[in-house]
């Protein structure tokens, strides 16, 4: 179970990193004759080019007379066809005639990068606050714990929604990335802090910590070098739980129009393009980002189950 999860997780990360090589087309390239075109049928070694039959009915036809060879490792891509002959659309095209497969791979880069950075941020804040609270004890501990418990009670998506909605609605993609990373890190730390606090508070009573104090270690040295390593396992588990939660948070915010601009491929913006039910009925390949999110969350759940912890996935 755990191996399957880790393999799936590794695969998604590999696909994201290798996106420029694996995608047969540029994610922004518009095939103006192929809006909502279905996935290209793959034959061994070649494809038939897809031609538009009726723009109004969105009907497409394969030109069976022509065989376009698929080539490995040419044009700087893993698998591609000659552009003049007709594109290779592994998962079809979206409303603007862009390659969904390419956008899915590039979207994985943005979505994963955002989630990973937010997770690191949340772990850092959580470890610092929890460490200080657990080490200091007393009034400091009480205040910090009460504060983090308070944030923990709030439904995270509403707070993220409110924080994002009060900023200007239209922002450039890089600003959105920074803003969302900040918001997610600020929403994710309390659960980390709570666990770290408990671990540090119990560790500092142990003999080795006493020995450290006796040998003259200052609070910072003791906390960072001696006590914090005890929380390592907890931090790893929290990271695997936070990562999919942040992927989903991005998807949710982009879906309701408060995330990235439409032109930037992320799993959220792609999902938003698939929100038109009437269109999705005719072009179900638009739901590819939903499948991607499902696979990622499944990978994490399989991994965490292997670790033997309750797979609590309550916050969407």
């Amino acid at each position: 179970m755990r191996k399957a999860g880790l393999t799936l997780l590794g695969l998604v990360i590999f696909l994201a990193i290798a996106a420029p090589v694996l995608a047969p087309n540029s994610p922004d390239k518009v095939f103006s004759d192929l809006l909502y075109a279905p996935p290209t049928d793959l034959h061994v070694g070649y494809i038939h080019p897809v031609r538009l039959v009726s723009r109004l009915e969105r009907r497409f036809e394969e030109d069976e007379a022509v065989r376009v060879p698929m080539e490995l490792f040419t044009r700087g891509r893993f698998l591609s066809v000659d552009d003049t002959q007709g594109p290779l659309l592994i998962l079809g095209a979206d409303a603007f005639g862009r390659d969904i497969f390419a956008r899915l791979l590039y979207g994985a880069r943005t979505s994963l990068a955002l989630a990973v950075l937010s997770t690191i941020g949340a772990l850092l804040i959580g470890a610092i606050v929890g460490g200080i609270a657990g080490y200091a004890g007393g009034l400091v501990d009480e205040l910090l714990s009460r504060f983090s418990d308070f944030i923990l009670v709030l439904p995270a998506i509403y707070v993220a929604l409110a924080l994002r909605a009060v900023m200007p609605l239209v922002l450039p993609a890089s600003t959105v990335f920074a803003v969302l990373t900040g918001i997610f890190a600020l929403m994710g730390w309390p659960i980390v802090a709570r666990g770290v606090r408990a671990i540090i508070a119990s560790e500092r009573e142990r003999e080795y910590a006493m020995a450290g104090v006796a040998l003259g270690a200052g609070p910072a040295r003791l906390l960072l070098l001696h006590l914090m390593p005890a929380a390592r396992g907890y931090l790893v588990v929290q990271a695997t739980l936070l990562l999919p939660a942040f992927i989903l948070a991005e998807a949710t915010l982009s879906y309701v129009g408060l995330g990235f601009p439409d032109s930037v491929p992320t799993w959220g913006t792609m999902l938003q393009e698939a929100s038109n039910v009437a269109l999705v009925g005719d072009a179900p390949w638009m739901l590819a980002p939903a499948a991607a999110i499902f696979l990622l969350v499944l990978a994490v759940n399989l991994t965490v189950q292997g670790v033997g912890r309750a797979p609590v996935q309550l916050e969407p």
Partner: peptide, 21 residues
């Protein structure tokens, strides 16, 4: 385990898709 991995955002999209079909 499968349903655990389909959060409300995806279940609602999926159900709306099924219902419309």
């Amino acid at each position: 385990l499968v349903f655990l991995s389909i959060p409300p955002l995806l279940t609602s999209l999926l159900l709306v898709f099924i219902a419309s079909r």
